[in-house]
């Protein structure tokens, strides 16, 4: 098995960090895992579409979907997806009330798709 966080095989052009490998490892170890993927960005969002983050029910995180601005909010929303199995499409951005709440200070806007693994 590949080491989490190390490039291995193929990681896409977006990131050297192999979030899928980490997520698969967590799942194999019996953890409940949700995957968050940036699917669309506008303005100065720091991470391109395709950026991924894995979150466990226990609160472990790997990868990122922003420059640290919204990871907390995504991890929180992930708990609901982990509980129900229903995917979510989250909107973050300056036009959104949550912008203040989550502090997307970059002024960017992005959509994040959340799904449960398994």
């Amino acid at each position: 098995m590949s080491q989490p966080g190390m490039p291995d095989g193929m990681t896409g052009s977006v990131d050297a960090e192999d979030v899928l490998a980490t997520a698969a490892g967590w799942r194999d170890a019996g953890e409940k895992v949700a995957l968050a993927t940036v699917v669309e960005t506008w303005g100065s969002s720091p991470r391109p579409a395709g950026s991924r983050m894995a979150v466990t029910a226990g609160g472990r995180m790997a990868g990122s979907v922003s420059g640290g601005c919204i990871e907390g909010a995504v991890a929180e929303a992930a708990q609901q997806t982990l509980a129900t199995g229903a995917p979510q499409l989250l909107d973050f951005g300056i036009s959104d009330d949550r912008a203040w709440e989550v502090g997307l200070a970059c002024g960017g806007k992005l959509k994040v798709f959340l799904e449960r693994l398994g």
């Binding site: 095989g9 995917p87 499409l89 798709f113 693994l117």
Partner: peptide, 29 residues
């Protein structure tokens, strides 16, 4: 994502085969 699909995606990665993952944003298909 189903474990089967994740496994197939990672198989493609290990084989260095270019693939794309298509996700329907309304329901996760």
């Amino acid at each position: 994502m189903t474990p089967e699909l994740l496994a197939r995606l990672r198989e493609a990665q290990a084989a260095k085969r270019p693939v794309a993952l298509a996700t329907r944003l309304t329901d996760g298909a």
